[in-house]
Design a protein around this nucleic acid. Structure first.
Lengths: 209, 209, 209, 209
DNA sequence: GATGAATGAGTTTTCATTCAT
DNA sequence: GATGAATGAAAACTCATTCAT
């Protein structure tokens, strides 16, 4: 469509990088908004305004609202899951300690960095089909991290659960709500609330003594 | 609106009753839809179509979308909370049994009668101010029922929690998600899933033995 | 985001000017229609159709019907009053001549350029609050011009009135009706009608000889 | 449809009279509202509510909004013109006295009894064709009364005008606006304002002395 | 790359009108 | 006679999408 003569040599030129940066800005802003308000309640005007560009520009980078939403979810998810996976891989100590650490990290990311984006882990129905699938996928990947630790703990006999799936569901559900009641707290109170949440959820896997 | 046997004093004639019935039809349909999809994703055309009337008719009964939503939430909530309250009042046995019964009933109502309306107990933000307040209020009343049983169990030493509020939040969060993973199951599998859920959540209050 | 109908001074680029021109087109069309038929009887579709655009475009420039109406009134008023004020400032001769000139100009503008918009000087009630206030304001400014000449004439003894306010009211009322009976006339007949109107109204201030 | 045995004898029976009374109530209420707000801004619900009946009932008496409006105007007009005609016929004194009396009576009826209905004498365009014609007709009849006195005065040389039509138009226009600036006044102040108005308008026909 | 402008389909809301009872 | 109920057309407003520049 456009014509940049010698362009094949450098596959990632200055221009590409700049484009990449722009895309990232857009995605993180979009993730914020979709996380806060859900799909329907966010208009492209909202996104554009927060970025201080025009709606039209968004269409230069994304073919439509759905695709923007999908990409936003994906980016957010990649970062997020990556950090959890790294934590799961490096954390020391008994499964019970590691589970606690995962829970705290998960919610800390949510509350601190993607305010309200945890919502994405619930409420799938109002989203269009495509984004919805991505959300499920994202959730599966998160699940996987937690499932790993749980299975370890179960294998070693440190954990006991009524049902693995059910336990995972309950954990995720509770974590997804956390920003709603921790979001407004001052940093100290918030830390305490998160500790309490982690302690409470760990009870779900407590082996009867 | 309700039905008190000897009632001739109040001019609740045939007409009034008929209107009442119609309003109820509308409300339960609206509650269904709003519960399923949330506020934004439901248009008055959707509601009207499911009732097989025209949009205009809805305006004969309600002044607007918000008011319809509020009324729907209120009706649904009144029925729901009522049943839980009655159960809490009449249930026998140790707190731990009664809590289990409450959880099962709560989720059973949701899954069976108000498919997906449990969503209302989460996700407040996308709703307009007025309905949002009603939703919060509804949640508070539900909370009250569970809180009562929890406090009893704590007083008697049968329960132990890290934090009462946090525990309640986790319970509600988990219950609110239940329809998403139990909704599709066959009746047998579903029963088992609900049992498992109840057992899992009861662990949240288990006193270390 | 969009819709600053009344432009500020400084950064007026090509784009701004183009926008300004468009806004002016819209405003004058709207002023025409609102003047002709009043607020209720004009739909945005009417305005859009006369401009040969879609309703949606209007919302690109103005946030709503009220705001469009207000802006239209304001623009129309600014032009109109400006011309009267200039005439009042430059007109020569005895007050009686100048009053006559003002009346003729006032009605000529109305009949010729804003067909029927004189209506705006009457009929306050059917308009929403905000536009109504603007209309009153507009009227006050017109009043001021006429009042000035009247006071001069009274001071010099050339005029005599029963009551200043009443006289002004009568004048305005009569002028506002003029398009209704002069509007349809051929240019010659119309000129004569306007002359007659001016002569008739000047009698209101005639000093008894 | 119903069966009242001996009923054919009296063509205007009890029933007819009752109907007549009901129709009168409706008409005067409608006249009030249409006078106050104009055609568009009055809904049949408004009329029905002020009468404390249902919209449906209005359709029992009138085939539609237009017809109701026409009838309302007609009734109001009949009463009004009748009183003016009687006054014109019986008033004593020089034309100038009689004109003054007519003006005062006309405006007094408007301000006192049909608040704001004087509006009907202006602003015809927003009304549907049929009612508009009736309004014009009503106006013509009023005109006739004033025209009569004016012609008398002209014939006797007591009056002098620039143009008869123009003078009549100006008078009506001014009178039609009167409620707007006299309506809010206390009874004393209002009397004085009406006197002033009459005096001012009489100047329109003053013969140069 | 980016923007302003325009569009058209869809949503909420209003209201004159009809009709069975 | 009168009412409650329902309808459908039209109006205000929103917003994802397109496009020329």
């Amino acid at each position: 469509m456009s014509s940049q003569p010698v362009e094949d040599a450098a596959p990632v030129g200055r221009v590409q990088r700049k484009r990449g940066r722009r895309v990232q800005e857009i995605l993180s802003t979009a993730a914020e908004l979709f996380g806060e308000r859900g799909y329907d309640a966010v208009s492209l005007d909202d996104v554009a305004e927060r970025l201080d560009v025009t709606k039209g520009s968004l269409y230069y980078y994304f073919p439509g609202k759905d695709e923007l939403a999908v990409a936003a979810i994906e980016t957010l998810g990649a970062d997020w899951t990556g950090r959890l996976e790294r934590l799961a891989a490096t954390a020391e100590g008994p499964p019970h300690e590691r589970l606690r650490a995962l829970i705290r990290e998960h919610v800390a990311i949510a509350v601190g960095e993607y305010p309200a984006a945890l919502r994405l882990f619930l409420v799938p129905s109002t989203w269009p089909d495509d984004p919805r699938e991505r959300i499920k996928e994202l959730r599966r990947r998160h699940d996987q991290v937690f499932r790993g630790v749980l299975e370890e703990g179960l294998a070693s006999g440190e954990f006991a659960v009524t049902g693995l799936e059910t336990t995972l569901q309950c954990m995720h559900a509770a974590m997804a709500q956390a920003p709603l009641w921790c979001g407004g707290l001052e940093s100290d109170a918030r830390e305490r609330a998160l500790d309490e949440l982690a302690d409470t959820l760990v009870k779900l896997v407590a082996a009867a003594q």
